[in-house]
Design a binder for these strands. Structure first.
Lengths: 111, 111
DNA sequence: CCAATCTACAACTGAACGGTTGTAGGTTGT
DNA sequence: ACAACCTACAACCGTTCAGTTGTAGATTGG
């Protein structure tokens, strides 16, 4: 794991660690939404929602494009998959433990 | 998504959002480690590492058992898989969008 | 028995976080 | 032209967070 990869993992998991952001992500994965349309969905200021979108954008989970005066946000499913890939690394490490235990149970018969 | 599920997701993603905690999780998924053994691996105080383990434990990613004066921490692969399950929900939402786009391309011939 | 080891927890500090309000600039419809 | 709308960003506030030090209680080995 390089420093850059760890930083990206930090950003991804942090972005996902807030429920409002997860909800925004669901909506924009389902389809493009303007920031103000998103803001109307939550009991907080426009600026707060704008910040949440910015956090998701910095993590690469969301991209924005301009259409006139609106900023249309869209969910990036590839980024979601990259998180799954990170989790698979943990699975792999765990399987290593299991393999080692199996070796023990097979008995230290020979080497 | 119930309130309890969202709280659990908060805890899981937050626990994973720190690189020291991810590193601890890798180690304890590979095999049991005492807290002080873990602490020796990092350039920070014992108490700091202890807190990280506690965060992982609260999220259910790690369990501890007592062995004499040591607290042995072990990684919970099922909890890691529950995070993967959370991500699959995002994938599902996204596939819904694609299906809708496909319908559009098929043409609004009839309903 | 006693010193060393391991854990647990409290109190503190600086930085980051989630939220607010306010201001300013670009775009749109009438 | 101009009012309404959308976005961007700065400044501020209270809370949480990651780290520290310090203290105290079990357990162990010589």
């Amino acid at each position: 794991m390089t420093e850059a990869e760890e930083s990206r993992a930090d950003a991804l998991f942090h972005a996902l660690s807030d429920r409002t952001r997860r909800d925004i992500l669901r909506r924009v994965l389902a389809g493009e939404h303007s920031v103000s349309a998103l803001a109307r969905s939550y009991d907080m200021s426009f600026a707060a929602v704008q910040k949440h979108v910015a956090v998701l954008e910095r993590a690469g989970l969301v991209t924005k494009r301009r259409s006139g005066r609106e900023a249309l946000a869209s969910g990036e499913v590839e980024a979601v998959r990259s998180v799954t890939a990170l989790l698979e690394e943990f699975e792999t490490v765990w399987r290593g433990r299991v393999a080692r235990i199996d070796d023990l149970l097979a008995g230290p018969g020979h080497t």
